[in-house]
Amino acid sequence: MSDSEPLVVEGRAWMFAEDNINTDLMMPQTVFAKPLEEQLRHVFATYRPGWLDQVKPGDVIVGGRNFGTGSSRPGSLLLKRLGVSALVAETINGLFYRNCINYALPAIECTGVRDLVLEGDIVRIDATRGVIENLTRGKGLTGKPMPEFLQAIVRAGGIMERLRAEGYF
């Protein structure tokens, strides 16, 4: 079970750099009672039409301030299922951050990241050290590392994997 989720990833960057990108843009209320497959067809669909056809497994998201503000609906799960391999944002809403951990999506905060990266750049994110490197432009920044306690949850594959292992489900 351990080490199954990589905490150092390399991928193509998508910029969602506006402040206050919210959960409802990822998972509109019209679909949150629907099956996962249907939810996946609505991620950022009104905010950024066409993005769903372009995002590829391994891509990373670069966000602005207060990324993921809003409700407890797990937008992080949908990003993960679309293949997004990590999130780095100027700042991340606390509930959204917890859901990143819960669903095993590596996430870090890094001041200045939205000026470090242009869309399509290849970046390497090391959540254990809080480091983001822009491999396309040869520059980098250090933000806040993911605490070891939380790294362990992500490595285990998220909360449900742990609870299953402990016999609760």
Binding site: P74, L95, R98, G158, I159, R162
Partner: peptide, 10 residues
Amino acid sequence: RGMGPQEMLQ
């Protein structure tokens, strides 16, 4: 505070 649905299960 609010928690995600899986964390509530935990």
